[in-house]
Write a protein that binds this DNA or RNA. Structure first.
Lengths: 340, 340
DNA sequence: CTGAAAGCGCTTACAG
DNA sequence: CTGAAAGCGCTTACAG
């Protein structure tokens, strides 16, 4: 097949050309595609037919300029190494697409990156912003909200920032884990932390410790940093210590998988000698090598709630901010010895 | 803090307002931000200062309309359950951001979804398209290319479609695995397939089988579907059969992890009784529970090459399509008994 | 039910 | 070095 000449096929079709061929005004063509009611069936059909023939589709950029709505949501994500986030990302884009919105994606390593990147996102006039686990500086949050762009934080919250947020009820989740571990008679408890600057870690830890305290118990704490390697190393330290724990609660699943592999390496039998509980319920928690007992985040409901909160505020900028905490549920698998 | 009135802060600042305050024409403001050379330092500074005070940033949508360039790349991805793709996604957005491009994200389950979604992407006048592992129908590919939007396929290719593509040298990778397994004296080989309709699976399998045939060997084949569960079940079938294999090559890493867990469940010792080799080198391949020997895809180079191919074609639509295959490298870990 | 016209917020020849 | 003006491709009052 010879190299195809693209000279004429390159011309993007506009509503003017469709109008010309259909013998109507450009306004009429526009009305056909903007869902205007008052149009005779005849003209609508004719325009639609010609548009189809020509492969015409309205230019969303031009439409955005005049309507001052892009129908684009900016999605800022980080920590893609945690398998929880691809799942979340996928669910968000799926849901937003279903509702007719587009997603402009930003991934960031650090929160400074986010602050630098955000003006670029805003230049594209996104109608709203979803921040998945990346953290926004409170100053930037204020700026964004001030220009009338609603923000929803997912999996973290920042009270007083003006941003709405949807998160798992991490505090209650932490309490729940403390409860079931104590109920099952565990005596030497440990917690492997996530990043100290995240509300997820802070709340899970606080819930766990507070419930332990209420029941006159306590626990060792090791740093884990929300990573597999962090969990592995932390568990190694715990399991090699003189009074080895008989139960470890990990700040999230990926940490717990590391802890389980540490136990496996040391020959510590799970769950007979050691119970391990995580948080998230990522796909790997079900893998037979792990069979991880964990607190499941209600991802679907969290996504649904986030999108709803955001789109409400896109439509009505005057709505105040809302913090929403959805309860997690304990998923009992083989990595923890619990009462039935 | 009382509810803040947003009535006036909601007005988006335009170049007109900046011009007014700076006592210059709107054209001049525009020139400051479009990097026009011929401007006195004095006016440039003054405009910049006022813009900063007002929080002005050019509206990218308006700019896109007039320049007919959005600086947006559409990224279509699927199979987010395979940990390889989040890594790729992250790397792509990072790289494109560095170069000043934005990413409009589309995730799709099936290829029919992609075909349906694509016109929506195109409505936003994306300057180029990267398709990560999702498959585009050849008809849709043709349409996209015809309107002058270059396409790069990542991790698959479609010769004759007109789309450029970057992929790992999967065929050679398959041959390499055959070679090292035979060299180490393995006698009973098996291959666990991925999805039959993907070039990655087809090429890895063909390379593996052809090299085996050249060395007068052959292998069993089981269906794995590129998933953990698929790998697990396939390996279970293989390992329970009368003539149990002593080496399994898996179409990708996630499949191989399933296979390793199947071996673990049956008490088959790795690598003494069984060698397992994967393809990709996902983060989990390093986990101590797996320590997977695998063919590493040169992700960084592949991303770099894809972005380069794409942007070249964005700048010059007349460039022909190019298929690029980058060699993978064997990463020797503990899951296979190989010669040093 | 339909058209002419204004305008969204920019860039960029064209003059000077 | 700078300004006035046209125009990117739409939507949407305003008339009729």
């Amino acid at each position: 097949m010879p190299q195809q000449k693209s000279s004429n096929s390159l011309r993007r079709i506009t509503s003017h050309e469709v109008a010309l061929r259909a013998g109507v005004s450009q306004s009429t063509v526009s009305r056909v595609f903007s869902g205007d009611e008052r149009l005779s069936e005849a003209t609508r059909e004719r325009v639609l037919g010609i548009a189809r023939d020509l492969g015409y589709k309205p230019n969303a950029i031009a439409r955005s300029l005049i309507t001052r709505r892009t129908k684009i949501i900016g999605l800022v994500a980080s920590y893609m190494t945690n398998p929880f986030f691809p799942v979340v990302l996928q669910a968000f884009t799926q849901r937003l697409h279903e509702l007719g919105w587009r997603v402009l994606l930003f991934t960031a390593g650090t929160s400074e990156d986010v602050d630098e990147l955000l003006p670029e996102v805003l230049a594209y006039q996104v109608d709203g912003l979803i921040i998945v686990t990346a953290s926004l500086s409170s100053q930037m949050t204020r700026e964004v909200l001030q220009r009338g762009t609603p923000v929803v934080l997912f999996n973290r919250y920042a009270p007083g920032s003006g941003a709405s947020a949807v998160s798992c009820a991490n505090y209650e989740g932490g309490r729940l884990v403390a409860e079931v571990l104590l109920d099952a008679g565990h005596k030497r408890l440990a917690y492997i932390t996530g990043r100290a600057d995240t509300s997820t870690n802070v709340d899970r830890q606080r819930g766990f410790l507070e419930r332990l305290a209420e029941r006159k118990s306590h626990c060792k704490i090791e740093l884990g940093n929300f990573t597999y390697a962090g969990g592995f190393d932390a568990a190694l330290r715990l399991l090699k210590s003189k009074k080895r724990p008989d139960a470890i609660f990990c700040a999230n699943d990926i940490t717990a998988l590391g802890a389980l592999d540490a136990a496996r390496k040391l020959g510590v039998r799970v769950p007979d000698e050691l119970s391990v509980i995580g948080f998230d319920d990522i796909p790997m928690a079900q893998w037979t090598a792990y069979d991880l007992t964990t607190v499941r985040q209600p991802v679907e409901e969290m996504i649904e709630a986030s999108v709803e909160l955001l789109l409400e505020r896109v439509n009505n900028i005057n709505l105040g901010s809302v913090l929403k905490f959805l309860p997690g549920t304990l998923v009992r698998r083989g990595s923890a010895r619990l009462q039935p």
